[in-house]
Computed example of a mutant assay.
Amino acid sequence: MNLYRGCTHGCIYCDSRSDVYNMDHDFEDIEVKQNALELLKKELLKRPKAMIGTGAMTDPYIPLEKHLQYVRKSLELIYRYGFGFTCITKSDLILRDLDLLKKINEKTRVVVQMTLTTADDELCKILEPNVAPTSRRVEVLKKLNEENIPTIVWLCPILPYINDTAKNINSIIDYCIDANVKGILCYNMGVTLRDGDREYFYEKLDEHFPGLKNKYIREFGNKYSINSSDNQKLMNIFRYRTKEHGILNNFDEIYNFLYHFPQKSVQSTLI
């Protein structure tokens, strides 16, 4: 389900800015789908029980959610009709809804997905300026673990010459081990860039990393998928350490875990 379109987190690498998504206004100008809750209720009434997820183009817990509470109201519907829930976020605002997440998890199932890109909070403020810093996100992961809500971490994007270091990858994995995450998703140590997204990213490189834009242009041109020169070494670290600590790192296994819905009788109260 997509409740909002656009985002105010300000992440410098965000693919959702890309022209292919045909957004005809500023990305920070949030579209609110005012009939989303009505549509969700109609769908829940007619569909078989399953995990309900939020779209990946917009973080469901943008600051506007504090006031509109569309996600919270959606969770109330999901709980009432006996569905499960998963989402991807970088925000600690999800803890506001911990009471509902616990109720859903007791009745069916919840999995929370959290993105981590850098272990350095100061760098995080540059890459993801308007969102909870990494250290706070790790606190959220730990709190969810204490409440028996499983978590998955997205280790991406890894930006060449910025956060593509063994120290960073090891530190993030240390955080994940400490927070007892179930799995870590990492396709490659790199980033994707395309028209719309690329221009914004380069503007921020000029602002925060002078000279790096020209290095990107020389080395990568207009490639869509850009990998770190240390991609293989960093992926080996990722695979070895996750396997060593029993953390899922296989795409199929993680997606099966995310969307598995328990086959048990669920009592629903329809209104």
Results as ranks from 00 to 15, higher is better:
Tyr4Met: 06
Tyr13Trp: 14
Arg17Leu: 08
Ser18Tyr: 03
Asp19Leu: 13
Tyr21Gln: 04
Tyr21Gly: 05
Asn22Pro: 05
Asp24Glu: 14
Glu28Ser: 15
Leu37Ile: 12
Leu37Phe: 00
Glu43Trp: 00
Ile52Pro: 01
Gly53Thr: 15
Tyr61Leu: 02
Ile62Gln: 06
Ile62Ala: 05
Glu65Leu: 10
Leu68Met: 11
Tyr70Arg: 06
Val71Thr: 14
Ser74Lys: 03
Ile78Arg: 00
Ile78Met: 01
Tyr79Gly: 00
Tyr81Asn: 00
Tyr81Leu: 06
Phe83Tyr: 10
Ile88Ser: 10
Ile88Asn: 12
Lys90Val: 10
Leu93Tyr: 06
Arg96Asp: 14
Arg96Lys: 15
Ile104Phe: 00
Thr108Ser: 05
Arg109Trp: 06
Val110Ala: 01
Val110Cys: 05
Thr115His: 10
Thr118Glu: 06
Leu123Ile: 07
Asn130Leu: 07
Pro133Glu: 03
Arg136Gln: 14
Val140Gln: 01
Lys142Ala: 03
Lys143Arg: 15
Asn145Lys: 14
Ile149Leu: 10
Ile149Arg: 10
Pro150Cys: 07
Trp154Lys: 09
Pro157Lys: 00
Pro160Lys: 01
Pro160Ile: 01
Tyr161Ser: 02
Asn168Ala: 06
Ile169Arg: 06
Ser171Thr: 12
Ile173Asn: 03
Ile177Pro: 03
Ala179Lys: 04
Tyr187Cys: 05
Asn188Trp: 07
Gly190Cys: 02
Arg194Cys: 12
Arg194Ile: 12
Asp197Gln: 13
Pro210Tyr: 09
Gly211Tyr: 09
Asn214Met: 11
Tyr216Asn: 00
Tyr224Arg: 13
Ile226Met: 01
Asn227Glu: 09
Asp230Leu: 13
Met235Asn: 11
Ile237Lys: 08
Arg239Thr: 13
Arg239Val: 14
Arg241Ala: 15
Arg241Gly: 14
Glu244Met: 12
Asn249His: 11
Asn250Lys: 14
Asn250Ile: 12
Glu253Arg: 14
Glu253Gln: 14
Leu258Cys: 11
Leu258Trp: 08
Pro262Gln: 02
Ser265Asn: 14
